[in-house]
Design a protein around this nucleic acid. Structure first.
Length: 299
DNA sequence: AATTCGCCCTGTCGGC
DNA sequence: TGCCGACAGGGCGAAT
């Protein structure tokens, strides 16, 4: 599922191709993915506007256009791909930045393509999302940070100064498991299930540990681990566990480098113990019973 | 007030 | 081979 490193990768790869281009026409083929306005008003609101900048906030992709912002959340299975003008539609193949390539879990326009941005010059940005958990919305002017979905977001983990954050934002008395805290977008923006499990492993913290029971040293270790696993994810251009693809249709390289996520029942890469799979905060969770010992009970 | 639960959705997989 | 239920989960609104 696209989390901060995946969204960051998409934004970085998309920006040089899309920034400065004008949207000739937009096609929204699944109206329920659009929030906050009637679907018939959407395409006319985009037509003719130039893309000035593309950026990321949490897991949201923000297209700053002339006079408004187009915001996309990829949900679980969303893909944003870019195709240049010169590649024809060819069944079984997909057009991409790197050329015409055989379709391998990557698709040209199909029944799961819900938004098409036709750029002046013939390039296209495609939003494809099989499970349709993604969201699309428009915010007038430059007020997108104040949109209800974005205004509730917490700190950007990679810009985080750990020490000040400790005092400011750590809920001192929370009984929630620390994994639930990591998944809470109002705590840190952009951490999802994959990188939460990876960060907990890296810092040696059991996912069920109550937030209030974390010692300061553990909190620092955890936040540093969050930053480290996110940076590693970006360096490897994202985790293609299932549907995530880069804008050119290719896969990220981080999945094979994960320590715990998706590895339940397999041996820990650090100590060899069998990794344990459970449910924490309503999410599938993998941890190492040796490297991440169960929290000591304290009254 | 803080947490948890139920729901949205569809491709994939295991069992029979 | 084919059918079917279970499962995956981000984020929101309802329930506890």
């Amino acid at each position: 599922m696209p989390e901060l490193p995946e969204v960051e990768t998409i934004v970085r790869m998309l920006a040089p191709h899309a920034a400065g281009k004008r949207i000739d026409a937009a096609e929204l083929t699944l109206p329920r993915m659009l929030l906050g306005m009637p679907a018939r008003e959407f395409a006319p609101a985009l037509a003719g506007r130039a893309i000035e900048r593309i950026l990321r906030r949490g897991k949201y992709i923000v297209f700053e256009l002339e006079g408004c912002a187009l915001i996309i959340h990829l949900g679980m299975t969303g893909q944003l791909t870019w195709s240049p003008a010169e590649y024809a539609e060819t069944p079984g193949f997909v057009r991409s930045i790197t050329g015409l390539q055989r379709s391998k879990g990557v698709h040209p326009v199909d029944k799961h393509t819900h938004l098409i941005l036709n750029l002046a010059g013939g390039e296209r940005i495609l939003f494809r999302d099989p499970r349709t958990f993604g969201k699309i919305f428009l915010v007038p002017g430059r007020a997108w940070p104040a949109h209800p979905r974005l205004s509730i977001l917490g700190a950007e983990p990679l810009e985080l100064k750990v020490k000040p954050f400790l005092k400011q934002a750590f809920p001192e008395d929370s009984a929630r498991p620390v994994k639930a805290l990591l998944l809470d977008q109002s705590f840190l923006a952009g951490v999802g299930n994959i990188y939460a499990d990876e960060a907990l492993f890296r810092s040696g913290i059991h996912p069920k540990t109550r937030s209030r029971d974390l010692r300061d040293g553990q909190r620092i270790a955890l936040l540093e681990a969050v930053k480290a696993v996110l940076r590693k994810g970006i360096r490897n251009s994202g985790t293609s566990f299932s549907d995530y693809r880069k804008p050119d249709g290719s896969e990220g390289n981080n999945y094979e480098r994960l320590k715990v996520y998706g590895r339940g029942g397999e041996p820990c890469r650090k100590c060899g113990s069998i990794l344990s799979k459970s449910v924490v905060a309503q999410r599938g969770t993998v941890h190492c019973p040796e490297c991440q010992p169960a929290p000591k009970r304290r009254k």
